[in-house]
């Protein structure tokens, strides 16, 4: 008991070294700083900011490293990640991927939802019918993500000028009509799973 307690303590305080990422306390200490923008446990309370807890490790790691290298466009995030080592970013990806994905289900008009459902036909192969069952680890969950964030993100993919690295996703986003964007965002945001 005594031993277990002190191991726990070391872990909470970020003093243990060499632990696996999942419980690496140094990573937890870094992760606490993310809460200011992404919410406790990566569940965002702000509609323009994404929830990140429970996204897949591969997706998280990929985009964070792309931001650090400057390969991928971001408005704010990239400037942060230049201050982290690759190992820390990998650790953060592992850490947030192990938290539960917590959809914040947002209600919308039936008409908007119907429009959104139709417009997401072509998205289904990769994102699943509701955005909650991505077909591979590089694809993020969309169900219960904030609608406002999703719409802004789609704007990035649709804007031909900023560096969004995933060509197929970009093409798909560009095929949407402008009026589809909010409907699609509300559709995914309304899905519990």
């Amino acid at each position: 008991m005594k031993l277990k307690q002190s191991v726990l303590l070391l872990a909470v305080l970020g003093l243990a070294v060499g632990a696996a990422y999942a419980s690496d306390p140094k990573i937890e200490a870094l992760a606490r700083s993310c809460n200011s923008c992404h919410g406790l446990n990566g569940v965002s309370a702000g509609p323009s900011m994404p929830s990140i807890g429970g996204q897949s490790e591969a997706y998280l790691k990929n985009i964070m490293l792309q931001w650090k290298s400057g390969k991928r466009y971001s408005a704010t995030m990239g400037r942060h990640f230049k201050g982290y080592s690759d190992e820390e970013l990998a650790g953060l990806a592992a850490y947030f991927s192990q938290l539960p994905w917590t959809p914040v289900v947002q209600h919308a008009d039936a008409k908007v939802l119907a429009h959104g459902k139709e417009a997401t036909d072509r998205c289904e192969t990769c994102h699943g019918a509701t955005g909650g069952k991505p077909d591979d680890a590089e694809t993020p969950r969309l169900n219960g993500q904030w609608a406002h964030y999703l719409a802004l993100e789609l704007e990035k993919y649709r804007n031909g000028e900023v560096a969004m690295t995933h060509k197929k996703m970009r093409k798909n986003a560009q095929k949407l009509e402008a009026a589809d964007v909010p409907a699609v965002a509300h559709f995914y945001a309304a899905q519990p799973e």
Binding site: C37, G39, A45, P47, M49, A75, L152, E155, K156
Partner: peptide, 20 residues
């Protein structure tokens, strides 16, 4: 686009930092 995004993120930041 950059300026628009950060105007929106400012508001999302506030909600999160208040909740946090």
């Amino acid at each position: 686009l950059q300026r628009k995004l950060e105007a929106e993120y400012a508001i999302g930041w506030l909600k999160n930092i208040m909740a946090d």
